[in-house]
């Protein structure tokens, strides 16, 4: 299992456990984490699964593709250094302990 620490906009914390192989979006949705909408289901079309990855985890979560990069320019909450689409982060054991925060608005 992979543990993910989620920080909400109001500062509250939530821990999510997920199986490796899922995308971070799928794990957050399965745990009903509020604020992760993921309307398009992972087609990189809607930018509503926007999360901000903690600076220490940016390398481990991998490269951002050109398509994801384009979509991150379209998020409702302004893009930050750690901004990612959670549907594009594949969970693996290496990401155990991953820290992300959820922006206040997805659309």
């Amino acid at each position: 299992m992979v543990k993910i620490s989620v920080t909400h906009e109001d500062g509250t914390q939530q821990d999510v456990q997920a199986n490796p192989g899922l995308s971070l979006m799928e794990a957050l949705r399965a745990a009903n984490v509020p604020g992760v909408v993921a309307e398009c289901g992972g087609s990189m079309s809607c930018a509503t699964c926007h999360v901000i990855v903690d600076a220490n985890w940016l390398t481990a979560t991998g490269e951002t593709s050109d398509m994801e990069d384009d979509m991150l320019d379209c998020t409702t909450t302004e893009r930050e250094t750690g901004s990612r689409l959670s549907c594009q982060i594949a969970l693996s054991e290496e990401l155990d302990g991953l820290k992300v925060s959820i922006p206040d608005n997805q659309f």
């Binding site: 309307e39 289901g41 992972g42």
Partner: peptide
């Protein structure tokens, strides 16, 4: 309802969905 395939799925998921 997340995960429905009403706009398709995968790389060919509806590009006009917005």
């Amino acid at each position: 309802v997340q995960g429905h395939v009403g706009m398709g799925a995968g790389v060919h998921g509806c590009v006009g969905q917005n």
